[in-house]
């Protein structure tokens, strides 16, 4: 089953809006989460307890603004995190330099793992690695189209079409 990796860091006083701008500018398609193998989903959530720039960032049960970086992954968290930091490059500094403790740490991956929050309960409707899900979606698309195209086809035509479709 995929694992949840959730890293919660406290945002420095007065840094919330600057951090919000950095995180909002992270590209989605082709962005950092997409470049780390074994990632199902990834998110940054900046949750604030102060008067907020958007209506949906408002006071909750937290002491101050917090940044949650969270991903659903197939690999070991330390391996995934090392790869993620590599992909982020200087962007990691741009993000977590707004968070408490980052400036005083040398071991970036270690800092983030220290701030990991473990799940009390995880749930997945389908227990499959992301590679298999993506392969399944691709095969499903191809075979659905083939089944429609090959209705009534003779066996030789069917086998040739199947070989062509799945041999790609």
């Amino acid at each position: 089953m995929p694992t949840q990796l959730s890293i919660l860091t406290a945002v420095l006083d007065g840094h919330r809006d600057a951090l919000h701008d950095v995180v909002r500018a992270i590209p989605v398609d082709g962005g950092p989460f997409s470049q780390v193998p074994g990632t199902h989903h990834g998110r940054f959530a900046l949750i604030s307890t102060e008067p907020s720039p958007t209506a949906r960032m408002r006071a909750g049960g937290l002491d101050g603004p917090m940044l949650m970086c969270s991903a659903t992954i197939d690999t070991a968290p330390s391996v995934w995190l090392g790869h993620f930091l590599q992909v982020l490059g200087p962007l990691a500094e741009d993000i977590w330099s707004h968070c408490n403790g980052w400036a005083f740490t040398v071991d970036r991956a270690g800092f983030l793992l220290e701030h990991r929050v473990h799940s009390a309960l995880e749930f997945a409707t389908w227990d499959a690695p992301v590679d298999r899900v993506q392969r399944a979606l691709d095969v499903h698309r191809r075979l659905s189209a083939l089944a429609v195209r090959m209705q009534g086809a003779d066996p030789a035509t069917l086998l040739a079409a199947y070989r062509e479709e799945m041999g790609r």
């Binding site: 989605v28 962005g31 958007t54 949906r56 499903h140």
Partner: peptide, 19 residues
Amino acid sequence: YETTSYWSAYPDATTRHVG
């Protein structure tokens, strides 16, 4: 609460579609 940045590896597939 707002998710500030979100990415999915299979954004066009619903959960039923994946199943």
